[in-house]
């Protein structure tokens, strides 16, 4: 009997001990006031997948991004690293501030479009297609340098009208199904939509690895998916409409930690 109990205790101890390399933040870190990261709504299995860098499939994109960071491309013979050196130092905190107002274009810019502009202007290289593996990988790599840092989005001054535009988008019923973002993600988060728990639609873990797509995925791809799920005409990825929405949604998640690469259903 004693041996059996000892064996049982050993099995239990093994089951509850997390692997040493798991990130495993305490659950409280995924909530700031009334704002919950999508992590909060995940089941245990998916949480564990995100927590373990050796199992998290989004880490493949981060690794690919690290290689792209060092790869020389374009007419100027430069890589990202040529000017920025070590991403772990200089890119730390950058993702917490994007999307943001951009004086140069007079609109909102996000990390994807910023990376592409740097490629064109500083490297003399062609921009990557919006949802290409390369652009997602670099975006994931840059975002990953801010993992654990709080999202801090500036919506003041010239960003304000874009913030209002994004907020209006969020609150507008759309498509043949005639449902707004807010109806689910503000009013019904935590409730069951068929077999799935509705999240708040937070973006602090983006680019994310989405299990149903089996790929690293951008915020705009998710917007497109949500729109077409409501049978609404989507906007192009990278469009001003989605940039304004991304600004509003990122602000909505202010204070939530950057989780890139998150794993979502």
């Amino acid at each position: 009997m004693k041996a059996l109990l000892a064996l049982l205790a050993l099995v239990l101890a093994t089951a509850v001990t997390a692997p040493a390399h798991a990130q495993g933040w305490p659950l409280e870190r995924y909530t700031v006031e009334d704002r919950n990261s999508g992590y909060f709504y995940l089941g245990r299995q998916t949480r564990l997948l995100q927590d373990d860098d050796f199992q998290n499939p989004g880490m493949f994109a981060v690794d690919q991004g690290a290689a792209l960071w060092r790869r020389v491309d374009g007419t100027q013979g430069r890589s990202c690293q040529t000017c920025h050196q070590n991403a772990a130092d200089v890119m730390k905190g950058v993702a917490t501030r994007y999307p943001a107002y951009d004086a140069k274009s007079g609109g909102i810019i996000n990390l994807e479009l910023l990376i592409n502009r740097e490629r064109v202007e500083k490297m003399g290289a062609a921009p990557f297609a919006y949802e290409s593996p390369e652009l997602l990988a670099l975006t994931a790599y840059v975002s990953h340098q801010s993992r654990g840092m709080a999202k801090n989005i500036d919506i003041s001054g010239p960003a304000a009208p874009f913030f209002e535009q994004g907020k209006e988008f969020w609150n507008t019923r759309r498509g043949q199904i005639d449902i707004s973002c807010a109806m689910c993600h503000d009013d019904r988060a935590g409730m069951l939509l068929r077999g799935d728990v509705i999240s708040q639609g937070q973006t602090n873990g983006h680019p994310m690895y989405r299990l149903i797509w089996q790929s690293i995925s951008s915020t705009h791809r998710m917007f497109e998916w949500c729109n077409t799920s409501m049978r609404a005409e989507p906007y192009p990825l990278g469009s001003p409409e989605y940039l304004a929405l991304e600004l509003y949604v990122a602000w909505r998640g202010r204070g939530l930690p950057v989780e890139t690469p998150s794993v979502r259903k």
Partner: peptide
């Protein structure tokens, strides 16, 4: 009285 219905569903 719907907003931005996806092209293939307009009028349906």
């Amino acid at each position: 009285a719907l907003t931005r219905v996806q092209r293939q569903y307009v009028g349906r």
